[in-house]
Structures are given as structure tokens and as C-alpha cells.
Design a protein around this nucleic acid. Structure first.
Lengths: 243, 243
DNA sequence: GGAGAATAGTTGTATAAACGACAAAGCTTC
DNA sequence: GAAGCTTTGTCGTTTATACAACTATTCTCC
């Protein structure tokens, strides 16, 4: 339980691992205080700044919590709390060893329906780009994407482009403002006839419904739509709070 | 665009905000390099360590990425990527202004079914604690929880306890080993008759299915089960990558 | 005994300095 | 011209120091 300064693993990381093991082994119980930074510094022969770096790493992972003037304390594990990360479609498919592709089903300029106009903050009836796409993984449709995008008159719609590009690149090319962030809401739903047909499953099958709003750097919405993920082929796994 | 050293906001945070604004405004485009740490240090009158602290904060938020020997670069926004956080039930209900409670439907010792025995890594038929609970928010059932827990013979089952406690405390009291982490998988599903009755909705309604494995400090599973969340009352919102 | 002041202990922030590791460009040599 | 070496610039890590801000305790004074 000492720091090996000749190791390739930097000391701050070694100390973080040592402390994590001790916490997981129960040497320090939830609520209990860890030794002060000065004590750890002396015990392991590291400067206080290095000790602080180890501690901040553990704090970021949620294992400990620091209180100014009081000390550093072990956090109570929050078993009922989970973090799920939804990766970009192609990246996720690649990680699962599947070849992924996109099939463009429809792309045309339409007058914005009332709801879309509201979400995009444009007058109802404004011409917007409406696209429908199938996201395929391993040859099968895994997701069905429908979106309204604010359209820049200067840039023509090239269906070939839409067909093969990921959403960010696609929007970048055809919208006026560059989207820089997005707001998403995830729901559980059942598929209606049209959606089920697009995903090649029975109507009434379960699916994830991901509503997505694309925002420009100044906060203006530039895109809105939903993406449906087949419930029998898609699941989210909680991220371990490893360091 | 200078650092106010007399402000209550520490300089490292001010610099991070300045750089974030510049990136969002497009002063530095995705892929482009930021000034080197030495240049920022000189420009803003801060030490290199302080500049590094600002940069590491932006890097953690995903706005920039550093490469040793090369420089610091603005990341491409990953519009299709999202982080969802599922909070502990009572905390989430409280945040939405609802009073929450738990109704214990069943709690008894049963021989572990094959699948549960496998998940809990005990011989099939081992006596385990099986519980069914309704999680209520605003007087309505919002979730339906079924779990198998490794049971410590020494500790009696007190139904009153199970009725009112959150899962972590509950397991803590009745299992041999203290669970310290959990692994969860989130799926979209449709409710069967029994589940629909428990949640007071129609069979075939959509729901989130959260499979949960509770793990002790040494990695041994001590609990396993599923929690169903009504699809019409529950949704997950992506966390903004704010700093 | 109680109120307030002083003190010790703790984390939070900032600085200067040094060295290491890596990348790219320029230079030398053959 | 090409291969290898050198130089320069960049981020990565650690140290030592100083001070600020906050908490809890102890001491002093009334």
C-alpha cells in the first residue's frame, strides 16, 4: 500500500486506486471521514497538491465528498440512481460489431405543421425540410427517424448526402445556423401501424421514443423530431461509476 | 474579456466561462486549436496551473480535447449523444412536487427460481427474500418493483420496515453483505395483465423496464429484480453538458 | 456561567518552478 | 534525396509555498 514512483502509473492515480479499494473494502464506511489531506500527504510521501488531485478524482466519481473546513467524507452509495449514455447511432452499432447504414425514405420541403412551427419558433406554414430515415444495423432497421429542420434557402437538398450522413453533418450542411447542442427526452411507447411497418415489427410492439431538439449556439432551435428505437433490439446500460 | 481578481468567482472559473462563450459564439470552430496554455497564461495574467484547471473543466464537459505535444482543440458537438440520469424514486418525485410513498404488496421467503439463482450466484432453490412493491407518487402507482434479495438468516423480516424504506436502506438491513453498487439495464416494454393491474393502466400500455443487480463491495450480487415505470407518466430528460 | 475572541485544523485557490513525454519541424549527414 | 538527429513547442505531472475561507475548539474576560 505504497506509491511506486518508478511505475508508469502516475502517483495521483495510484493513490486514488488505493483509497478506492479501501473504501470498497469497508475500511472507511459511508459518512466516515478520510484522513486529512496533510495526513495523506505525509503518509504516502506526496505533495498536498498531488493528494488533492487523487481526491478530486474520487469526488468526481461520487465516492467521496469534501467539505471546506471540515474534511473529506465517504459518500453513501446511491443504489437507485443510474446514469445512461446514449451514443451516436453508428458508433454504438460499431461497438456491437454491426455494420450500420442509413436509408433515406423521404426528404422534402413542407410547410411547417403547427406543432413543428412552435418547436422551431417559426411562423406556421414556413417551409421546412422534413426527412424520414431508417437507421439500419446488421441489415435490419433498428431505428426510425423523423425530423423537421430549419432550411437554408441557399443550400440545395442533395438526397445522396442525406442518405449517408450522420445527423450532425447533415444539419450542418443544410441549416442556416450551426447546431451546437441538443435537448432530448426519452420515453417508452408502443408502435402504431406506420411505425411498426418501418421497423419491420408487429404493431403494438414496445419502443423507445427519443424526442430531439437541435439548438444553435445562440439557443435558437434549428431542428426537431423523434427517433424510435426497437424495444426488442435496443437497451440502455447504466454506466458504472468507475474512475 | 479579462479576469476580475476581486470577484467572488475564482479566476479559473472566469476563464472557463470566457472560453466557453467564445467557443459557443464560434470564435473557435470545431477542430480548431485554442491558444496554448502558455499563451492563455500570459494573455489573462494567470499561472499555467490555473489555466490548466480551466481547460480541464472544459475538457470534462466535452467542449475541448487536449493532445499531448500537439495542443488543445475544440471538440465537434455530438448531437446524437445524450446522457440520462435516473434519480432515486423519492427524490425524483419530490423534485416534481409530488408526495411519494411505498406500498408493500408481498414479502416472503421463497426458493430461488432458476433464473434468480443464476443472477444471484446461489444454488437453485436457496431461500431468498422476494418482495413486490408499488411505488406511488401523487397517490397513483407510478412504478411496480419486484426483487429477489439474498437474505441473512440472522435478521428477521419486518414488514413495516420494508413498507416505508428506500431500497438501499432496506437491503442494508436484511442482506448479509452491504450492497455498494448496482448495474442497471433499461428497456422499453409493454405491460402484461398482472403488471397493468398493478400500475392501474390498460394491458399493452408502454413502460420502462429497469433491470437491477445489486452488488456487494467484493462484486458478489446480493439482489436482482425489475422495476416497471409507467410510460405515460415517466420520461427521462437529457442532461445538458453545462459546466 | 456565558459571550466573545483567539487559535488550530481543514479544504480551496493561486503561483513559480522544474522535469518528463510526445509531436512536428528543421537540420545534418551520408 | 533520404535517413537520422536536434531543436522547439506542446501538454502531463509533481513539488513547495503562500494565503484565503471556513469550522470547531479552546481560551479569556466579564
Amino acid at each position: 500500500m505504497a506509491i511506486d514512483k518508478s511505475s508508469f502509473v502516475p502517483p495521483y492515480y495510484q493513490l486514488a486506486q488505493i483509497l478506492e479499494r479501501q473504501i470498497r473494502a469497508g475500511d472507511y464506511r459511508p459518512g466516515e471521514a478520510l484522513p486529512s489531506e496533510a495526513e495523506l500527504s505525509e503518509k504516502y510521501g506526496l505533495s498536498r497538491m498531488t493528494v488533492r488531485r487523487s481526491l478530486s478524482q474520487l469526488a468526481r466519481a461520487g465516492l467521496i465528498r469534501t467539505e471546506r473546513g471540515k474534511g473529506t467524507f465517504v459518500s453513501r452509495p446511491e443504489l437507485d440512481r443510474a446514469v445512461f449514455i446514449m451514443e451516436e447511432f453508428h458508433k454504438e452499432a460499431a461497438a456491437r460489431g454491426l455494420t450500420s447504414s442509413v436509408r433515406l425514405l423521404e426528404a422534402r420541403l413542407v410547410p411547417a405543421p403547427e406543432k413543428a412551427a412552435g418547436k422551431l419558433q417559426v411562423p406556421a406554414g414556413t417551409k421546412v425540410l422534413y426527412i424520414r430515415r431508417s437507421l439500419l444495423a446488421g441489415g435490419e432497421p433498428l431505428a426510425y427517424d423523423r425530423k423537421y429542420l430549419c432550411y437554408d434557402r441557399g443550400r440545395p437538398i442533395l438526397e445522396n448526402e442525406l442518405q449517408y450522413q450522420a445527423l450532425p453533418e447533415m444539419v450542418e450542411k443544410h441549416a442556416e445556423a450551426l447546431p451546437i447542442s441538443s435537448k432530448m427526452v426519452l420515453q417508452a411507447t408502443v408502435l402504431n401501424d406506420e411505425e411498426a411497418r418501418a421497423l419491420r415489427v408487429a404493431p403494438g410492439s414496445p419502443a423507445f421514443l427519443l424526442e430531439q431538439v437541435l439548438l444553435a449556439g445562440d439557443g435558437r432551435p434549428v431542428g426537431w423530431g423523434w427517433c424510435l428505437y426497437r424495444g426488442d433490439r435496443y437497451q440502455l446500460t447504466s454506466v458504472s461509476t468507475a474512475i
